[in-house]
């Protein structure tokens, strides 16, 4: 129930971010909303830096489509890296080499 309530708050926060219109205001709001959603702030600066970089790319490109395509490609690479890391973890736990 608590998770559902927090997810509703996140959704409402995202509506606020989209309504902000200005990119800088949207970025600040987005970080605040996600920090409130998380509760545990360990490692949040790493995510914030990534979000700032993405906002910079959007501002520099002046479009929406290309940054999203670029982000999709980057996320694909990240997913592959995550899968590889998970595979190494599973091998290490099974007694093989990491």
């Amino acid at each position: 129930m608590a998770a559902d309530r927090r997810f509703l708050l996140l959704s409402a926060g995202e509506v606020l971010v989209v309504a902000a219109g200005d990119l800088v205001a949207a970025l600040v709001l987005q970080v605040i909303v996600l920090a409130a959603f998380l509760g545990d702030l360990r490692g949040l600066p790493v995510f914030t830096v990534a979000a700032v970089l993405f906002a910079a790319v959007i501002a520099a490109s002046g479009t929406v489509f290309l940054p999203l395509v670029g982000l999709a490609a980057a996320l694909g690479c990240g997913y592959v890296a995550l899968t590889l890391r998970d595979y190494r973890l599973a091998r290490w736990a099974a007694g093989g080499e990491a």
């Binding site: 200005d22 990119l23 987005q30």
Partner: peptide, 8 residues
């Protein structure tokens, strides 16, 4: 702003 929200 929506693109930033989605990407983040």
């Amino acid at each position: 702003a929506a693109a930033l929200a989605a990407g983040s």
